[in-house]
Nucleic acid binder design. Structure first.
Length: 699
DNA sequence: GGCCCTCGAGTTCG
DNA sequence: CTCGAGGGCC
């Protein structure tokens, strides 16, 4: 190939690859098959290698990064990089908008609004449409030249598209997408590399790598959101008159601009945007710490001017932090109803997502080992999608060490004996959970068994909470579930008096004298009401391992009465739908234990009773054989009531959506289950349709 | 033996 | 809600 035609081909390849990159990374609409892309890139590489004179630092092949070039050179920003005023409350937003309305005389000014990415601010300089230099923010006036590292970022255009100004400086944020961060850390763990503490630190650290080849391996991305210096070839350039139009223009030039940018008017518009982004915050592919409001019209911006270094026409409205750092004060264990030993951390209380968090579960020994959490460690805690705090990771760099630089504390190990009863803790082969072997000898297990027995879905004894059960067991009033039915008002009053003397483990609101008597009467009444129950509730309340509500219901339907269940061997039990050999063994063992038989006899003697009937096999009804899932809240009835009505019509009400689900009933604020149903193409009913169906099939 | 669907169990704060 | 594991079907 002559060098002339090589030059033409190189030019063509660079265009094709740049275009493919733009479509893939910026527009998210890949067009070129991966194999074809690789082929073009390899062809370009070999042509550039054969023709060194035609190499170009803005060639797409440069994205693999270049060797270190010493220190970062300082870069003077042509126009200073600003900082923004922050707001943490609605009233600050009102003040901000009020000021602008007053001073511009515009009763309903438009704002360009955008998410505030949690990354690293940078400035990018283009001359004649080609990327020439990129710098960190630094102190706002002078930053560091990180051009080589920025070139490795796939979403950053190396050449602009269309009519680019002579000089164009844009400001943006370099960030690490959440998924890329997770992927990178998984890779780093597997390969013995240091993991990144969070996406923001990951972005900052990667951008300040002296060796751009390392940066190239870090999955960074960039969004632009503002202009710096702009010079057009001809005298006065046609700059758009508003910020939102500028963003659209930047997008046309090939820059990645957040798809969440919008225009809003007035305080209500801004707050609505803040709420809308806040609602999807977790689902966004990047971390944000707030949203930014910018007065849209440039003439109005000029009228507002600056205070020190912050513009008076822009505001960053921050969300409460969702991830915070704190320290581990101790690692302790809980013993559950089945003896499951669950480790958890007590940590220095810290505000996360608006509430103070002081403890978080570690689930099991595997999780402790994975995180390698130790006493004294600095940890990142998060309140994920729901409410439950979790330990995200340990910041190993901050682990306390002794004089010789060794960690102060060894890796945490689960205790070998139960802290509540001293029995051995064992973990079966292949199982994740470790269990206390003490059984009902263990006070922790006994308390949990009682709590489960009294719980709403079991015997439904109102007012018998966890702390109160603790006191009952510790003071020796109750050993087995049947003991509950022997307690009198006098017992409760006496117990209350003793508990008050010993500690404050009984609610403070319960005072002595008449009030105590009244309270005791209520409890005795609640216990008495629970005597009348159903077979499935009783079976569930007994706390047989692996027998939850659903299995208890299956047993009750299949056998109709208690005696045949107690008498059944494992073979007979296995013939019940959804009961296999393992659950059958647990059930048979439970009823083979003499103390369980005694407890059941005592319950019956104490007056616990339930209707018994004939065995029921496959149900019929208009919904026979259908599996239904309820999600979200219904207005006209509780979720339980809706379940009962559907079951009465023969449906099986399940908790999780799958291909086999017949239909999903979605109420208010339906969440992931609705999304899953839509993804799987499962039929979705709204409340109106459910009500119409129920009305049409009323008994 | 491997998959998919369910169920069970544990969990935090106000 | 999420994870782990039991049950059932291919």
């Amino acid at each position: 190939m002559t060098s002339r035609s090589a030059a033409a081909r190189i030019d063509e390849l660079r265009r094709l690859i740049d275009d493919a990159n733009h479509r893939y990374y910026v527009l998210d609409e890949p067009q070129l098959p991966d194999a074809e892309y690789d082929r073009l890139l390899r062809e370009l590489e070999s042509l550039e290698q054969a023709n060194p004179a035609l190499r170009d630092s803005n060639s797409p092949t440069a994205r693999v990064g270049s060797a270190p070039s010493g220190r970062f050179a300082p870069v003077q920003h042509a126009t200073p990089m600003l900082s923004l005023a922050n707001a943490f409350s609605e009233s600050e937003v009102r003040d901000f908008v009020g000021r602008i309305e007053r001073e511009t005389g515009d009763a309903s000014p438009a704002f360009s609004v955008e998410p505030k990415l949690d990354g690293l601010a940078i400035s990018l300089r283009y001359e004649a449409g080609a990327f020439v230099q990129g710098a960190t923010r630094g102190d706002g006036a002078t930053g560091e030249d990180v051009s080589a590292n920025l070139r490795t970022i796939r979403t950053l255009p190396l050449r602009l598209r269309g009519q680019a100004p002579e000089v164009l400086e844009v400001r943006g944020e370099v960030y690490m997408p959440k998924a890329a961060f997770e992927r990178y850390n998984a890779w780093a763990r597997d390969n013995g590399q240091r993991t990144l503490a969070n996406p923001r630190n990951g972005a900052a650290g990667s951008l300040r790598q002296l060796d751009a080849r390392i940066t190239a391996q870090r999955p960074l991305a960039v969004y632009v959101y503002a202009l710096g210096e702009v010079r057009f070839a001809k005298a006065a350039g046609p700059l758009p008159p508003t910020h939102s139009q500028t963003l659209a223009w930047l997008r046309e030039l090939g820059f990645p601009v957040s798809p969440e940018v919008d225009v809003a008017r007035g305080v209500d518009g801004l707050l609505a945007y803040f709420a809308r982004i806040g609602a999807v915050r977790n689902a966004l592919p990047y971390d944000i710490d707030g949203v930014v409001y910018k007065l849209d019209r440039y003439d109005q911006q000029r009228a507002m001017g600056f205070v020190s270094r912050a513009p008076r026409w822009a505001l960053a409205h921050k969300y409460p932090a969702q991830e915070e750092m704190t320290t581990v004060e101790s690692i302790e264990v809980n013993v559950g109803r089945t003896g499951a030993v669950t480790p958890w951390v007590r940590m220095t209380p810290v505000q996360v997502g608006g509430v103070v968090v002081s403890r978080a579960t570690l689930h099991n020994a595997d999780q402790v080992a994975r995180l390698d959490v130790r006493v004294g460690d600095s940890i990142i805690v998060r309140r994920a999608g729901d409410v439950i705090p979790e330990v995200v990771r340990v910041i190993e760099e901050r682990r306390p060490v002794d004089k010789r630089g060794r960690p102060l504390h060894a890796a945490y190990q689960l205790p070998g004996i139960c802290p509540d009863c001293g029995s051995a803790i064992e973990r079966e082969d292949g199982e994740v959970v470790a269990r206390c072997t003490g059984g009902l000898v263990c006070p922790a297990q006994r308390k949990q068994a009682l709590f489960h027995f009294a719980s709403r879905r079991a015997m439904d004894i109102d007012g018998l909470g966890e702390r109160f059960i603790d006191a009952l067991v510790e003071l020796g009033y109750v050993r087995s579930v049947a003991d509950l039915y022997r307690l009198t008002v006098d017992d409760f009053v006496a117990m209350k008096r003793r508990a008050d003397e010993l500690s404050d483990s009984v609610p403070q609101t319960v005072k002595g004298g008449k009030v105590a008597t009244r309270w005791a009467e209520n409890l005795v009444g609640a216990i008495d009401r629970s005597r009348k129950t159903t077979l499935e509730r009783l079976l569930f309340a007994l706390g047989i391992r692996d027998v939850g509500e659903s299995t208890a219901k299956a047993l009750a339907r299949h056998f109709g009465s208690l005696a045949p269940i107690m008498a059944a061997d494992e073979d007979i039990l296995t013939s019940v739908p959804d009961i296999g050999p393992i659950v059958a063994a647990h059930i048979a063992h439970f009823f083979a234990e003499p103390h369980n038989l005694v407890a059941i006899g005592e319950l019956v003697d104490a007056g616990v009773h339930w209707p018994e009937g004939a065995p029921q096999r496959a149900s019929d009804g208009p919904l026979a054989g259908q599996t239904v899932v309820l999600t979200g809240g219904l207005e006209s009835m509780s979720r339980e009531a809706a379940s009962a009505r559907l079951e009465a019509l023969g449906a099986k009400v399940s908790g999780s959506v799958s291909k086999k689900t017949s239909f999903v009933v979605a109420g208010e604020a339906a969440g992931t289950k609705l999304a899953k149903a839509q993804e799987l193409g499962v039929e979705v009913w709204d409340e109106a349709r459910l009500l119409a169906f129920l009305a049409g099939h009323a008994h």
